[in-house]
Protein backbone atom coordinates (compact mmCIF):
# COMPACT_ATOMS: atom_id res chain seq x y z
CA UNK A 1 0.00 0.00 0.00
CA UNK A 2 1.58 3.27 -1.07
CA UNK A 3 0.82 6.50 0.68
CA UNK A 4 -1.02 7.85 -2.36
CA UNK A 5 -3.42 4.88 -2.57
CA UNK A 6 -5.25 5.63 0.67
CA UNK A 7 -6.56 9.11 -0.21
CA UNK A 8 -7.45 7.91 -3.71
CA UNK A 9 -9.45 5.07 -2.15
CA UNK A 10 -11.15 7.47 0.20
CA UNK A 11 -11.96 9.79 -2.67
CA UNK A 12 -13.40 6.93 -4.68
CA UNK A 13 -15.45 5.86 -1.68
CA UNK A 14 -16.69 9.39 -1.22
CA UNK A 15 -17.69 9.75 -4.86
CA UNK A 16 -19.44 6.41 -4.71
CA UNK A 17 -21.33 7.50 -1.60
CA UNK A 18 -22.26 10.74 -3.30
CA UNK A 19 -23.54 8.82 -6.31
CA UNK A 20 -25.56 6.44 -4.19
CA UNK A 21 -26.94 9.35 -2.20
CA UNK A 22 -27.98 11.22 -5.31
CA UNK A 23 -29.59 8.17 -6.88
CA UNK A 24 -31.45 7.40 -3.67
CA UNK A 25 -32.61 10.98 -3.33
CA UNK A 26 -33.84 11.05 -6.92
CA UNK A 27 -35.60 7.71 -6.61
CA UNK A 28 -37.10 8.64 -3.24
CA UNK A 29 -38.36 11.92 -4.62
CA UNK A 30 -39.91 10.16 -7.61
CA UNK A 31 -41.52 7.56 -5.39
CA UNK A 32 -42.93 10.17 -3.05
CA UNK A 33 -44.24 12.60 -5.63
CA UNK A 34 -45.07 10.35 -8.60
CA UNK A 35 -45.39 6.68 -7.72
CA UNK A 36 -47.21 7.10 -4.42
CA UNK A 37 -50.02 9.30 -5.80
CA UNK A 38 -50.30 7.02 -8.84
CA UNK A 39 -50.58 3.99 -6.58
CA UNK A 40 -53.12 5.84 -4.42
CA UNK A 41 -55.31 6.49 -7.47
CA UNK A 42 -55.47 2.79 -8.29
CA UNK A 43 -55.83 1.76 -4.64
CA UNK A 44 -58.77 4.13 -4.13
CA UNK A 45 -60.36 2.99 -7.39
CA UNK A 46 -60.18 -0.64 -6.31
CA UNK A 47 -60.97 -0.07 -2.63
CA UNK A 48 -64.39 -1.65 -2.87
CA UNK A 49 -63.23 -4.40 -5.16
CA UNK A 50 -63.05 -5.02 -8.88
CA UNK A 51 -66.81 -5.27 -9.22
CA UNK A 52 -67.45 -1.75 -7.90
CA UNK A 53 -64.64 -0.50 -10.14
CA UNK A 54 -66.14 -2.14 -13.22
CA UNK A 55 -69.63 -0.92 -12.33
CA UNK A 56 -68.30 2.63 -12.00
CA UNK A 57 -66.68 2.66 -15.42
CA UNK A 58 -69.55 0.77 -17.06
CA UNK A 59 -71.88 3.74 -16.48
CA UNK A 60 -72.82 5.32 -19.81
CA UNK A 61 -71.46 8.71 -18.66
CA UNK A 62 -68.01 7.21 -18.26
CA UNK A 63 -68.11 5.80 -21.79
CA UNK A 64 -69.29 9.16 -23.13
CA UNK A 65 -66.49 10.96 -21.28
CA UNK A 66 -63.87 8.58 -22.65
CA UNK A 67 -65.17 8.92 -26.22
CA UNK A 68 -65.29 12.71 -25.92
CA UNK A 69 -61.78 12.91 -24.50
CA UNK A 70 -60.41 10.76 -27.34
CA UNK A 71 -62.39 12.74 -29.93
CA UNK A 72 -61.10 16.09 -28.69
CA UNK A 73 -57.52 14.77 -28.63
CA UNK A 74 -57.97 13.25 -32.09
CA UNK A 75 -58.88 16.66 -33.50
CA UNK A 76 -56.59 18.87 -31.45
CA UNK A 77 -53.39 16.84 -31.80
CA UNK A 78 -53.31 16.62 -35.63
CA UNK A 79 -54.11 20.33 -35.86
CA UNK A 80 -51.19 21.14 -33.59
CA UNK A 81 -49.00 18.65 -35.45
CA UNK A 82 -49.51 20.55 -38.69
CA UNK A 83 -49.22 23.94 -37.02
CA UNK A 84 -46.16 22.90 -35.02
CA UNK A 85 -44.23 21.68 -38.08
CA UNK A 86 -45.20 24.77 -40.07
CA UNK A 87 -44.27 27.13 -37.24
CA UNK A 88 -40.97 25.38 -36.52
CA UNK A 89 -40.07 25.46 -40.19
CA UNK A 90 -40.88 29.12 -40.50
CA UNK A 91 -38.95 29.93 -37.33
CA UNK A 92 -35.80 28.01 -38.29
CA UNK A 93 -35.57 28.29 -42.07
CA UNK A 94 -36.68 31.82 -42.85
CA UNK A 95 -36.02 35.35 -41.79
CA UNK A 96 -39.11 37.49 -41.78
CA UNK A 97 -40.47 40.51 -39.96
CA UNK A 98 -42.40 39.48 -36.84
CA UNK A 99 -40.37 36.31 -36.28
CA UNK A 100 -39.65 37.24 -32.67
CA UNK A 101 -43.34 37.93 -32.21
CA UNK A 102 -44.26 34.48 -33.58
CA UNK A 103 -41.78 32.91 -31.18
CA UNK A 104 -43.34 34.75 -28.27
CA UNK A 105 -46.86 33.86 -29.40
CA UNK A 106 -46.03 30.15 -29.56
CA UNK A 107 -45.09 30.36 -25.88
CA UNK A 108 -48.19 32.33 -24.93
CA UNK A 109 -50.31 29.30 -23.91
CA UNK A 110 -47.54 28.30 -21.47
CA UNK A 111 -47.68 31.64 -19.72
CA UNK A 112 -51.44 32.25 -19.78
CA UNK A 113 -53.61 30.50 -17.22
CA UNK A 114 -55.82 27.87 -18.92
CA UNK A 115 -58.86 29.38 -17.21
CA UNK A 116 -58.18 32.67 -19.00
CA UNK A 117 -57.87 30.74 -22.26
CA UNK A 118 -61.32 29.28 -21.69
CA UNK A 119 -62.83 32.64 -20.77
CA UNK A 120 -61.40 34.23 -23.91
CA UNK A 121 -63.33 31.76 -26.04
CA UNK A 122 -66.50 32.46 -24.05
CA UNK A 123 -65.98 36.17 -24.71
CA UNK A 124 -65.48 35.49 -28.42
CA UNK A 125 -68.06 32.79 -29.12
CA UNK A 126 -70.49 32.97 -26.17
CA UNK A 127 -74.03 34.23 -26.71
CA UNK A 128 -72.99 37.68 -25.43
CA UNK A 129 -69.60 37.48 -27.19
CA UNK A 130 -68.28 39.14 -30.36
CA UNK A 131 -69.40 36.39 -32.70
CA UNK A 132 -72.27 35.17 -30.50
CA UNK A 133 -75.19 36.78 -32.38
CA UNK A 134 -73.86 35.63 -35.76
CA UNK A 135 -73.38 32.06 -34.52
CA UNK A 136 -76.85 32.02 -32.95
CA UNK A 137 -78.41 33.33 -36.17
CA UNK A 138 -76.84 30.41 -38.04
CA UNK A 139 -77.78 27.86 -35.40
CA UNK A 140 -74.16 27.11 -34.51
CA UNK A 141 -73.10 26.20 -31.01
CA UNK A 142 -69.39 26.63 -30.23
CA UNK A 143 -69.15 27.20 -26.49
CA UNK A 144 -70.68 24.50 -24.27
CA UNK A 145 -70.27 22.04 -27.16
CA UNK A 146 -67.53 19.97 -28.79
CA UNK A 147 -66.10 22.82 -30.95
CA UNK A 148 -65.47 24.90 -27.82
CA UNK A 149 -63.74 22.00 -26.11
CA UNK A 150 -61.54 21.49 -29.18
CA UNK A 151 -60.68 25.21 -29.40
CA UNK A 152 -59.71 25.38 -25.73
CA UNK A 153 -57.64 22.20 -26.03
CA UNK A 154 -55.88 23.39 -29.19
CA UNK A 155 -55.00 26.61 -27.38
CA UNK A 156 -53.40 25.00 -24.34
CA UNK A 157 -51.55 22.32 -26.33
CA UNK A 158 -50.33 24.62 -29.09
CA UNK A 159 -46.68 25.00 -28.00
CA UNK A 160 -45.80 21.35 -27.48
CA UNK A 161 -44.92 20.23 -31.02
CA UNK A 162 -43.34 23.51 -32.12
CA UNK A 163 -41.22 23.81 -28.95
CA UNK A 164 -39.95 20.28 -29.41
CA UNK A 165 -38.99 20.86 -33.05
CA UNK A 166 -37.49 24.35 -33.04
CA UNK A 167 -34.25 23.61 -31.10
CA UNK A 168 -33.62 20.46 -33.14
CA UNK A 169 -34.24 22.10 -36.51
CA UNK A 170 -32.11 25.03 -35.46
CA UNK A 171 -29.22 22.67 -34.60
CA UNK A 172 -29.62 20.65 -37.80
CA UNK A 173 -29.56 23.66 -40.05
CA UNK A 174 -30.87 23.71 -43.61
CA UNK A 175 -27.90 22.29 -45.52
CA UNK A 176 -29.38 18.89 -46.22
CA UNK A 177 -32.58 20.45 -47.48
CA UNK A 178 -30.64 22.85 -49.68
CA UNK A 179 -28.69 19.91 -51.09
CA UNK A 180 -31.95 18.14 -51.88
CA UNK A 181 -33.28 21.19 -53.68
CA UNK A 182 -30.03 21.54 -55.62
CA UNK A 183 -30.33 17.92 -56.70
CA UNK A 184 -33.75 18.63 -58.13
CA UNK A 185 -36.22 17.64 -55.39
CA UNK A 186 -39.42 19.62 -55.26
CA UNK A 187 -40.75 21.06 -52.01
CA UNK A 188 -42.82 18.02 -50.97
CA UNK A 189 -40.09 15.56 -51.91
CA UNK A 190 -37.62 17.52 -49.85
CA UNK A 191 -40.01 17.60 -46.91
CA UNK A 192 -40.90 13.93 -46.91
CA UNK A 193 -37.45 12.54 -47.76
CA UNK A 194 -35.15 14.91 -45.90
CA UNK A 195 -36.88 17.09 -43.32
CA UNK A 196 -39.38 14.61 -41.93
CA UNK A 197 -36.88 11.77 -41.41
CA UNK A 198 -34.59 14.24 -39.65
CA UNK A 199 -37.19 15.50 -37.23
CA UNK A 200 -39.40 12.46 -36.76
CA UNK A 201 -38.28 11.58 -33.22
CA UNK A 202 -38.66 15.09 -31.90
CA UNK A 203 -41.98 15.26 -33.71
CA UNK A 204 -43.13 12.06 -32.05
CA UNK A 205 -42.15 13.34 -28.60
CA UNK A 206 -43.99 16.57 -29.27
CA UNK A 207 -47.10 14.71 -30.37
CA UNK A 208 -47.01 12.44 -27.32
CA UNK A 209 -46.67 15.39 -24.94
CA UNK A 210 -49.37 17.27 -26.81
CA UNK A 211 -51.67 14.26 -26.60
CA UNK A 212 -51.08 13.75 -22.89
CA UNK A 213 -51.94 17.36 -22.17
CA UNK A 214 -54.94 17.31 -24.51
CA UNK A 215 -56.46 14.37 -22.66
CA UNK A 216 -55.65 15.71 -19.22
CA UNK A 217 -56.56 19.39 -19.60
CA UNK A 218 -58.97 20.59 -16.92
CA UNK A 219 -59.07 24.36 -16.45
CA UNK A 220 -59.72 25.60 -19.97
CA UNK A 221 -62.23 22.90 -20.86
CA UNK A 222 -64.00 23.37 -17.53
CA UNK A 223 -64.83 26.95 -18.49
CA UNK A 224 -66.19 26.14 -21.96
CA UNK A 225 -67.80 22.79 -21.14
CA UNK A 226 -71.06 23.76 -19.41
CA UNK A 227 -70.75 20.43 -17.57
CA UNK A 228 -73.57 18.69 -19.41
CA UNK A 229 -73.36 15.14 -18.15
CA UNK A 230 -72.68 12.62 -20.90
CA UNK A 231 -72.39 15.31 -23.56
CA UNK A 232 -69.67 17.87 -22.83
CA UNK A 233 -67.78 16.34 -19.92
CA UNK A 234 -64.29 15.06 -20.69
CA UNK A 235 -62.62 12.59 -18.37
CA UNK A 236 -60.97 15.14 -16.05
CA UNK A 237 -64.33 16.91 -15.64
CA UNK A 238 -66.06 13.58 -15.02
CA UNK A 239 -63.54 12.86 -12.27
CA UNK A 240 -64.32 16.17 -10.54
CA UNK A 241 -68.07 15.65 -10.90
CA UNK A 242 -68.03 12.21 -9.37
CA UNK A 243 -65.85 13.40 -6.53
CA UNK A 244 -68.41 16.15 -5.87
CA UNK A 245 -71.16 13.56 -5.83
CA UNK A 246 -69.50 11.63 -2.99
CA UNK A 247 -68.83 8.86 -5.55
CA UNK A 248 -65.17 8.44 -4.59
CA UNK A 249 -64.76 4.99 -6.11
CA UNK A 250 -66.24 6.29 -9.37
CA UNK A 251 -64.04 9.37 -9.35
CA UNK A 252 -60.87 7.36 -8.82
CA UNK A 253 -61.99 4.70 -11.30
CA UNK A 254 -62.23 7.30 -14.07
CA UNK A 255 -59.00 8.90 -12.82
CA UNK A 256 -57.27 5.52 -13.04
CA UNK A 257 -58.45 5.14 -16.65
CA UNK A 258 -57.00 8.56 -17.40
CA UNK A 259 -53.76 7.51 -15.71
CA UNK A 260 -53.80 4.30 -17.77
CA UNK A 261 -54.11 6.30 -20.99
CA UNK A 262 -51.08 8.31 -19.88
CA UNK A 263 -49.19 5.12 -19.06
CA UNK A 264 -50.03 3.68 -22.49
CA UNK A 265 -48.62 6.86 -24.04
CA UNK A 266 -45.49 6.49 -21.93
CA UNK A 267 -45.18 2.82 -22.84
CA UNK A 268 -45.56 3.62 -26.55
CA UNK A 269 -42.77 6.15 -26.27
CA UNK A 270 -40.50 3.74 -24.39
CA UNK A 271 -41.22 0.95 -26.87
CA UNK A 272 -40.31 3.16 -29.81
CA UNK A 273 -37.15 4.29 -28.04
CA UNK A 274 -36.16 0.72 -27.34
CA UNK A 275 -36.98 -0.49 -30.86
CA UNK A 276 -35.31 2.37 -32.68
CA UNK A 277 -32.82 3.40 -30.00
CA UNK A 278 -29.76 3.21 -32.24
CA UNK A 279 -31.45 5.36 -34.85
CA UNK A 280 -32.35 8.02 -32.31
CA UNK A 281 -28.79 8.02 -31.02
CA UNK A 282 -27.46 8.36 -34.58
CA UNK A 283 -29.81 11.26 -35.25
CA UNK A 284 -28.82 12.94 -32.04
CA UNK A 285 -25.09 12.74 -32.87
CA UNK A 286 -25.92 13.82 -36.39
CA UNK A 287 -27.68 16.84 -35.04
CA UNK A 288 -24.81 17.65 -32.73
CA UNK A 289 -22.33 17.35 -35.57
Amino acid sequence: MSAAAAPRGARRWRSRAARAGLVLAALGFMALFLLLPLAAVFAEALRQGARAFLAAIAQPEAGAAIRLTLLVAAIAVPLNLVFGVAAAWAMTRFEFPGKALLGALIDLPFSVSPVIAGLVYVLLFGAQGWFGPWLAAHGLQVIFAVPGLVLATVFVTLPFVARELIPLMQAQGGEEEEAARTLGANGWQMFFRVTLPNIRWALLYGVLLCNARAMGEFGAVSVVSGHIRGLTTTMPLEVEMRYNEYDYVGAFAVASLLALLALVTLAAKSLLEWRYGHEIAARATGARR
Binding site: Q128, G132, I143, F144, G226, H227, I228, M241, N244
Partner: peptide, 16 residues
Protein backbone atom coordinates in the same frame (compact mmCIF):
# COMPACT_ATOMS: atom_id res chain seq x y z
CA UNK B 1 -75.62 20.19 -15.67
CA UNK B 2 -74.67 21.13 -12.10
CA UNK B 3 -72.47 23.86 -10.64
CA UNK B 4 -72.48 26.98 -8.48
CA UNK B 5 -75.81 28.74 -9.05
CA UNK B 6 -74.36 32.11 -10.09
CA UNK B 7 -71.86 30.42 -12.38
CA UNK B 8 -74.60 28.35 -14.01
CA UNK B 9 -76.78 31.42 -14.59
CA UNK B 10 -73.80 33.13 -16.24
CA UNK B 11 -73.28 30.08 -18.47
CA UNK B 12 -76.93 30.16 -19.60
CA UNK B 13 -76.55 33.86 -20.41
CA UNK B 14 -73.39 32.99 -22.34
CA UNK B 15 -75.25 30.40 -24.39
CA UNK B 16 -75.46 27.14 -22.43
Amino acid sequence: SNGGSGKQARAVVDGL
